[in-house]
């Protein structure tokens, strides 16, 4: 009985010491991070989908738009830029891979943009400085 009690006490002491050491390790890791954050406090962090933000003004009262791209949109690649576009343009619903009356196009090159426009019979309405395009269906 006494031996068990002694074992528990030693164990508790060891756990407490380990917890204190781990806390010190944590704060040792955190301190340089906190200093770094304070130094870069004024630096603006990039807004998710910032490249699509100016398109929103041109799409007022639109409910749904097609989203066409030649980039990797697999789940493993976190759906590429698509989710950023969806976040920036919400509450407009973006329909990935489908054409609608109005469409958003994001491509890796101008050639790819032209190819998508021709393939889906679309006419570009507006291209922003990041190459993000609003295109409408040719009737």
């Amino acid at each position: 009985m006494k031996l068990t009690q002694r074992y528990t006490q030693v164990l508790q002491f060891c756990v407490l010491c380990s917890a204190i050491i781990l806390t010190i390790i944590s704060f040792y890791t955190l301190t340089p991070e906190i200093i770094k954050v304070r130094k870069n406090w004024s630096n603006d962090k990039p807004y998710p989908g910032a490249a699509f933000l100016d398109l929103k003004d041109k799409l007022k009262s639109l409910k749904i738009a097609g989203y066409l791209t030649n980039k990797d949109v697999s789940s493993e690649k976190n759906d590429g830029e698509f989710l950023m576009a969806q976040y920036a343009l919400a509450p407009i619903v973006l329909d990935l891979g489908q054409t609608h009356t109005v469409n958003i196009i994001s491509t890796t090159s101008k050639e790819a943009l032209v190819a998508i426009l021709q393939q889906h019979k679309l006419k570009p309405l507006y291209i922003n400085k990041h190459g993000k395009t609003i295109a409408i269906k040719i009737k």
Binding site: L16, A19, I20, L22, T23, S26, F27, T29, L30, E33
Partner: peptide, 10 residues
């Protein structure tokens, strides 16, 4: 100590 251990974990 337990709470600090968790809340201070990076």
């Amino acid at each position: 100590l337990a709470a600090i251990l968790m809340l201070g974990n990076p």
